[in-house]
């Protein structure tokens, strides 16, 4: 029999604004650089997490998004993410330094799944991870992978969605998935919420 799961919370970050469950909770001028926006969001959330400043843009976005999404998580919360540009921002930084002195701290961030490591450390999640890449959001693979993890008790809950940062822009859309709730977790719903302005 088909078991259903539910979307119980969501977070969206775009155009220098953070939305929790579709409600704007923080906003700065769109003219502000992404680094400045992230710094102000860090202060707004009162994060006091020194490691944050060492992270690349993708990881900073991931830490802010998961902090907004929920206050605390069970350690068997899985992470199922997708984006388009992998770790492009850090890749270009590393490439620029090839002839000079490549930075080991920057090199670590040239993998998209590092953000799942940072999120796991911050929220102490010792669970399943999968990072997918696609030109466009593929909700069906996110849903099918997440459902498989939850149905087979590989994880009790999951944070899943889209976490993109490239040389020009960024877009974050993460969801919290549980066995109980009201909004049924499905690919069409996920896609609709992803597109929703």
């Amino acid at each position: 029999m088909r078991k259903e799961f539910y979307i119980t919370a969501s977070v969206k970050i775009k155009n220098n604004e953070i939305f929790k469950n579709d409600r704007s909770i923080f906003k700065v001028n769109r003219g502000l650089s992404i680094q400045d926006f992230l710094k102000e969001a860090y202060q707004f959330l009162d994060l006091s997490y020194a490691k944050f400043h060492k992270m690349d843009v993708l990881c900073k976005l991931g830490i802010i998004a998961t902090t907004v999404l929920k206050e605390d998580y069970s350690s068997d919360t899985a992470l199922v993410f997708q984006n388009k540009s992998s770790s492009e921002v850090s890749d270009f930084q590393h490439q620029e330094k090839l002839n000079d002195f490549p930075s080991p701290a920057n090199f670590v961030y040239t993998l998209p799944n590092i953000v799942m490591g940072e999120i796991s450390i911050k929220h102490q999640l010792q669970s399943e991870n999968a990072f997918f890449i696609a030109e466009e959001f593929q909700p069906q693979i996110i849903v099918s992978h997440t459902e498989s993890l939850l149905k087979n008790n590989k994880a009790s809950t999951t944070i899943c969605g889209w976490l993109e940062a490239n040389l020009n822009d960024y877009y974050v859309f993460l969801n919290y998935i549980e066995p109980q709730g009201e909004v049924v977790f499905s690919a069409p719903t996920l896609l609709e919420n992803y597109i929703h302005e």
Binding site: K54, D100, F101, P102, S103, P104, A105, V108
Partner: peptide, 17 residues
């Protein structure tokens, strides 16, 4: 100060550079 293993590698780069 709380530096870690990646910081140590960065310090090695700093010394050389």
């Amino acid at each position: 100060i709380g530096l870690d293993s990646i910081d140590a590698l960065e310090l090695i780069v700093l010394l050389e550079k």
